[in-house]
């Protein structure tokens, strides 16, 4: 065994890096926001006596999310969007953090990852249905 307990605990116990702390709060906040929206949607779904097996309405990018309120999908689609967007927002905030520190290689890595996400969206739209 090498390294001892401090190795296995990583940086635990040290003062958190400000960027790590911001990202931690972002991930936690994003998760709770998403879980809150999804919970409201599930409650609305159950209260309406509807079965998930009926199938929900398709995503309509042309109308604002609140247009479907108070139907279940008015909470569920925004909740799902927050779930999927939270990791990408975490990378975007990291990019800003690295640019401020002038860490160019890490900034390039972060912007490349965001580029891949953007490419995913573009290809999904282009090959849709």
């Amino acid at each position: 065994m090498t390294g001892g307990a401090s190795t296995l605990r990583g940086h635990e116990g040290d003062t958190a890096d400000p960027l790590d702390r911001v990202l931690a709060r972002l991930l936690t906040g994003g998760t709770w926001l998403a879980v809150g929206l999804l919970t409201l949607g599930v409650v609305a779904l159950l209260a309406a006596g509807r079965s998930p097996l009926e199938g929900g309405p398709p995503l309509d990018l042309g109308s604002p999310p609140w247009a479907a309120l108070p139907r279940p999908e008015g909470f569920l689609w925004p909740g799902l969007a927050v779930v999927i967007a939270t990791p990408a927002v975490r990378v975007a905030v990291s990019l800003v953090g690295y640019l401020r520190r002038d860490e160019r290689v890490m900034a390039l890595v972060a912007s490349s990852t965001l580029g891949i996400i953007a490419l995913s969206i573009a290809l999904a739209v282009a090959t849709e249905g």
Partner: peptide, 10 residues
């Protein structure tokens, strides 16, 4: 991941 970053394990 939020917890792991806060604790500086990740």
């Amino acid at each position: 991941a939020g917890v792991y970053l806060e604790r500086r394990v990740a």
